[in-house]
């Protein structure tokens, strides 16, 4: 695995050039350009804010809007990484047929592109949060906002691992991508993205503890919404999640790496 990572590093110019190409193609031919990556979360936020606060009489907007923006940005990144990542090997078939690069580089291409795309949405969420100041109780430290960094790193590792696993599965089962879309739809409503974790009461606690999206989401939401770093046990949960995902991805890769070429 270490050897594969150093190879990925040696071929970073190849990787980054393709990531740049993907982004250029994504934003080309649209007047809004990069603005597209903002439009979706902002439009969603407006709709949900209207529905939840005005019609259903939910939380107060200064807390709800940042909550939603962060939730949608993180969710968007994880979901797109998994679904677009599952196409990585099929999309890169011609490179795989030509060059013996470690296969992880192809999901990484997708996830890096998504990461750059999502950075804008996350930045907007951070700025909005700073404007609304939804801290409850008072922030312990204004610099606590920097403590989202471990969460972002863990989020990236989890996304890369998930993309790698699904990319392998997709080579064997062609409906993987559609199943992922369905699963994502369910997970979206089963995760406190558009509602708050407090609304899940009683026996649902274990689900919040085990839901991978929620584990990541909390690491990023806590510093922004509450103004203090995530607690050590939450960080540990994130770390466990990342270790499990990386192990699964590396295991899948070690198991199937030599066979993928014959299935493409």
């Amino acid at each position: 695995m270490i050897q594969n990572l150093t190879t990925v590093w040696r071929f970073r110019h190849f990787l980054l050039a393709l990531v740049r190409l993907d982004l250029r193609l994504r934003y080309r031919r649209s007047i809004l350009g990069v603005g597209w990556s903002l439009l979706n979360p902002i439009a969603m936020t407006i709709v949900f804010a209207l529905v939840f606060s005005k019609i259903l009489g939910g939380d107060d907007l200064t807390r709800y809007v940042p909550h939603l923006l962060i939730g949608l940005a993180v969710w968007g990144f994880l979901k797109e990484s998994a679904t677009a990542g599952s196409r990585a090997f099929l999309q890169s078939e011609s490179y795989i047929r030509q060059s013996p690069l470690p296969l992880g580089i192809y999901p990484l291409r997708v996830v890096l592109g998504q990461a750059i795309h999502s950075t804008i949405a996350i930045a907007v969420a951070v700025v909005v949060t700073l404007v609304y100041q939804p801290y409850q109780p008072e922030p312990t430290d204004p610099l606590a906002i920097l403590s989202i960094v471990p969460g972002l790193i863990l989020m990236f590792l989890v996304a890369w691992s998930a993309a790698t696993i699904f990319a392998f599965v997709n080579v064997y089962f062609q409906d993987t991508q559609h199943l992922l879309e369905v699963a994502a739809q369910l997970l979206f409503f089963l995760t406190p993205i558009i509602y708050t974790a407090g609304k899940l009461v009683g026996k649902a606690w274990w689900w919040l503890e085990l839901n991978p999206v929620q584990i990541i989401l909390e690491l990023i939401r806590t510093p922004l919404m509450k103004g203090h770093p995530p607690t050590a046990d939450r960080l540990l949960a994130g770390l466990y999640l990342a270790v499990v995902m990386i192990t699964l991805a590396a295991g899948t890769a070690a198991w199937l790496r030599k066979r993928v070429i014959f299935h493409l």
Partner: peptide, 24 residues
């Protein structure tokens, strides 16, 4: 298999660099 693996949307120049980076 050398004619495999061009990025169809990118220009010839860009494809030269992608392929060259792939070759190290």
């Amino acid at each position: 298999d050398i004619s495999l693996g061009f990025e169809p949307e990118a220009t010839g120049w860009d494809n030269i660099s992608y392929r060259a980076f792939l070759q190290g």
